[in-house]
Design a protein around this nucleic acid. Structure first.
Length: 493
RNA sequence: GCUGCCAUCGUCUAGAGGUUUAGGACAUCGCCCUCUCAAGGCGGAGAUCACGGGUUCAAAUCCCGUUGGCAGCGCCA
């Protein structure tokens, strides 16, 4: 056992989006591939923006995607609860280490007001320098400090950034990255309200949770030197870092709300399969040497490795995801697919779509259309004509197949013949027998098979596209087929 | 503005100095199969490996520069 430990640490300020899922996925896959542990930590220290609903949305998404975590502060039935930073804050976890840093001279209280800090930033920017805190509270005497404390009870704690030297990050994906410390400022580690900031809470928790590998998006890369400095000050071993490339929208900017669907839950609503999304996301920034495209979840857990993660950003491409979804749908057994569909109906509150439909007929009709289904939401339209008594005849289909000058005579003939002969058909209404009947009819009347097949298709389904005609007829049954043909005859001839 | 990261077909990518006329997948186009639509099979088109300099007998692969894209620079995470 290698004992690697990784975590996914989302902030609950909205739905879990595609980028977040990819981060969670890679962490989870890495853990599984190494027989390590995967932890979920909710970073809810932004009291203004964190919401209970977002926490639930993240948990729901993780559950749907089957990204399970292996540890937590408590258990709810068979599942672990995630870690919550605000709960840990209540336990004094972060304050303790902030105090330690101040005591050891690695951090100091700062009494500057928001206005003062804004002013500094503006000035720095005007001088074309990186916006930076000017450290005025760093050199306060004990006396100054006492006086300030009386005036403003609440100070923030800033970390003393060394200004000489560089901080070196040996990234597992990018190799060596060097940062000049003089560009980094004395950042805040504890807010005035006693809540830790991201960079601080993250380090404390990663250490306390024994995280060995920090696998995250490369938008965090410039935070890393700050975090490394905290580890050093506390004399803690720095974990290994791996920064993966971002996922971009089709316009090249980082994926965001502007790009339409970004929340995983929206993909679920559209009728994407969990496995398709996972498979697709795995391919965004990771690949195998043989360029394998379709993976089972098990294969991913087995084959994933950080070394094979790429460094360049990837554009999210719905076309390929859609293909993969069809691929996954085709790989399902009829039973699995039906269950998936029912889950989707429930999830999207669309159960009324199949109200009154015969379940057995539904299952069988889905089977006939399986290879065509790209999204679960396609299913109702694909099969609904089986269930409606008064089917909707597509205008174009009727005009082209039944009523055009070229086709109307043969169409009328075929339908009239079929209505009579099929009604007489005694026992065998199998696809095989029906096909034989249709081919014989074409031969007998000396017309093309298509001139027999197409009118029947339109008469019983109202469409030019659909499942294999004779399987469709077999499934509908004799009475219904004959009835529909008669209806069509009365309607159009 | 400063700092950092990145740069191979439209998109995801393979490629770690010679085995590359740069391979695979999606999309696209054509053909085959065929009762329609799909699915499947076969094939085509599509990348002077961002550009410019080096290093080397040899570079998509190493080095430098340029350009472009993205990211970070909060009492957000």
């Amino acid at each position: 056992m290698s004992g690697i430990r990784v975590r996914f640490a989302p902030s609950p300020t909205g739905d879990l989006h595609i980028g977040g899922v990819r981060t969670a996925l890679f962490n989870c896959l890495f853990a599984k591939s190494q027989a390590g542990k995967f932890i979920l930590r909710i970073e809810d220290t932004d009291e203004a923006r964190s919401t209970e609903g977002s926490v639930q949305a993240i948990l729901d998404a993780m559950k749907w995607l089957e990204l399970g975590w292996d540890e937590g502060p408590g258990r709810e039935e068979t599942k672990y609860s995630p870690y919550y930073q605000m709960k840990r804050k209540e336990q004094g976890v972060y304050q303790r280490y902030a105090d330690e840093l101040v005591a050891k001279g690695f951090a100091y209280p700062c009494y500057c007001t928001q206005e003062e800090v804004d002013e500094m930033r503006k000035k720095a920017q005007a001088d074309k320098l990186p916006p930076k805190y000017d450290r005025r509270c760093r050199y306060l005497t004990a006396e100054d400090r006492k006086r300030k404390e009386n005036k403003w009870a609440k100070a923030v704690i800033r970390f003393k950034m060394p200004d000489s030297e560089t901080t070196i990050l040996n990234d597992l994906i990018r190799g060596k990255v060097e940062f000049n410390n003089s560009l980094l400022d004395d950042f805040i580690i504890m807010k005035a309200n006693g809540v830790p900031t991201y960079n601080f809470a993250c380090v404390i928790d990663d250490y306390l949770m024994d995280i060995t590998h920090v696998l995250r998006g490369d938008d965090h890369i410039s935070n890393t030197p700050r975090q490394i400095r905290i580890y050093d000050a506390l004399n803690w071993q720095v974990p290994k870092f791996a920064h993966m490339a971002m996922i971009l929208g089709s316009d090249g900017a980082r994926l965001s709300k502007r790009h339409g669907h970004t929340s995983v839950l929206e993909y679920r609503k559209e009728g994407y399969l969990q496995e398709a999304l996972i498979n697709y996301l795995a391919l965004l920034g990771w690949s195998t040497e043989d360029s394998q495209q379709v993976f089972t979840i098990e294969e991913l857990k087995q084959k994933f490795s950080i070394e094979r993660c790429g460094t360049s950003p990837a554009t999210f491409d719905t076309e390929k995801l859609l293909w993969l979804n069809g691929e996954k749908i085709r790989s399902k057994t009829p039973k699995q697919l039906f269950e998936l569909f029912v889950d989707w109906l429930k999830y999207t509150n669309n159960e009324k779509l199949i109200e009154g439909w015969d379940i057995e007929l539904l299952q069988k009709s889905i089977l006939l259309e399986q290879e065509k289904i790209k999204l679960l939401k396609d299913i109702p339209f694909l099969v609904n004509f089986f269930f409606t008594k008064d089917i909707e005849y597509q205008e174009e289909a009727v005009n082209k197949i039944l009523l055009s000058d070229k086709s109307k005579d043969s169409a009328e003939l075929v339908l009239n013949e079929s209505a009579v002969i099929l009604a007489r058909q005694q026992q065998d209404f199998s696809a095989l027998a029906l096909e034989k009947y249709a081919r014989d009819l074409a031969k007998e009347k000396n017309i093309k098979t298509g001139q027999v097949f197409h009118p029947i298709r339109v008469a019983i389904s109202g469409r030019t596209q659909g499942p294999s005609l004779f399987h469709m007829m077999e499934l509908m049954g004799k009475d219904e087929v004959v009835r529909r043909i008669s209806v069509a005859i009365n309607k159009f001839f």
